[in-house]
């Protein structure tokens, strides 16, 4: 760091002293870390759960409790521990009486500046996306960030058509973006004028996620309705 030190044949320090010092320092630091970890773990987990619940309840109106799941080609498993190969994570939300209110999953695609990540709610009864919230984005403030609050854009996610094809291999109609003001069909997303790239990212994210997740999930709806 400083160039003022003159190195003049330093007296040798024994290795034992070095090891002893480092061992002592490591022990003290280790104890401090463990104490902090133990005391904050509960609060951190509670914070994370609350944040996730708040996000999920926002896209599934009327939900009171939620569970997370992994949808795998072999069926649904509880969403704990590491994610199995080829699985998709989603959340099932229930009302106070234990009835299934809806499902939610995260979707992401490349936007103008970085990944645009959103959470969308899926209503199994109508086979539509009926809720939407932005998880994270780095789009230009004033243009791309309209995906959070632009009323006309939010209207796209009141009942976005994501019906599965009869073979249950994918969507009947892929979710696509159309020019602002020209939305005619249920599976189209009306782009924000001037924020086409960001609108496309949202649509692509939801489309990619739904194409993969729904075929895995829909055959097991009864299991979810029974409370997982």
């Amino acid at each position: 760091m400083s160039g003022t030190q003159v190195i003049a044949a330093p007296a040798r320090t024994s290795s034992v002293a070095m090891i002893r010092t480092l061992g002592l320092v490591a022990t003290v630091c280790g104890i401090l870390l463990v104490l902090t970890y133990e005391n904050t773990l509960e609060a951190i987990n509670a914070n994370k759960r609350i944040a996730l619940e708040r996000a999920v309840f926002k896209v599934i109106p009327g939900a009171a409790t939620m569970k997370s799941f992994y949808a795998t080609p072999a069926g649904l498993v509880p969403g704990e521990g590491p994610m199995p190969e080829g699985a998709m994570k989603f959340y099932a939300a229930y009302d106070g009486q234990g009835g299934l209110k809806g499902l939610a999953a995260e979707a992401g695609a490349m936007g103008y500046a970085d990944m645009v990540r959103v959470l969308y709610g899926y209503d199994p009864a109508t086979e539509t996306v009926n809720g939407y919230g932005v998880v994270s984005h780095r789009e230009t403030p004033g243009i791309g960030d309209k995906i959070i609050f632009d009323q006309a854009f939010l209207k796209n996610f009141k009942a976005l058509d994501v019906r599965l094809n009869p073979g249950k291999t994918g969507l009947v109609n892929p979710v696509v973006v159309v020019k602002h003001g020209t939305k005619q069909r249920g599976w189209e997303i009306d782009a924000i004028a001037g924020a086409t790239v960001t609108s496309r990212a949202v649509a692509k994210g939801i489309n990619d996620s739904a194409q993969k997740l729904l075929p895995l999930l829909v055959p097991h709806l009864e299991q979810l309705q029974a409370g997982g």
């Binding site: 401090l32 870390l33 902090t36 970890y37 904050t40 609060a43 951190i44 914070n47 994370k48 609350i50 944040a51």
Partner: peptide, 14 residues
């Protein structure tokens, strides 16, 4: 201490 402050902030406000 950086790790400690990291835990503390996560515990105080996510």
């Amino acid at each position: 201490f950086v790790t400690i402050v990291d835990y503390l902030i996560a515990a105080i406000s996510l």
